[in-house]
């Protein structure tokens, strides 16, 4: 992963680094924001964690779905 990141164009690398810092900062905002309600998910960093894990699961499951579901482009023609 690090090798791929280093091979990116410098502008993109800078942009992504700024983005990662922003992600970190917005997660830290949980320390000062008072959340609504009394739910079990009102712990530090829940939405950050959920967003990341949900999307990784989504993509991995979708990629796995290709095995039984994917056919040629002209399957119905």
């Amino acid at each position: 992963m690090r090798a791929r990141f280093n091979s990116l164009p410098p502008r993109l690398k800078r942009g992504l680094t700024v983005f990662f810092v922003l992600c970190f900062a917005i997660t830290l905002a949980d320390l000062v924001v008072h959340k609504h309600g009394d739910h079990w998910w009102n712990f530090f960093g829940f939405h950050s964690l959920y967003g990341f894990v949900a999307c990784v699961i989504l993509v991995l499951v979708a990629a796995w779905m290709r095995k039984p579901l994917m056919r040629d482009e002209d399957h119905y023609d």
């Binding site: 992600c23 917005i26 949900a54």
Partner: peptide
Amino acid sequence: VEQTQLLFFSAMAFI
């Protein structure tokens, strides 16, 4: 804040 966290980390997952 919560919505921004959700979306930023979805983008992070994509990257």
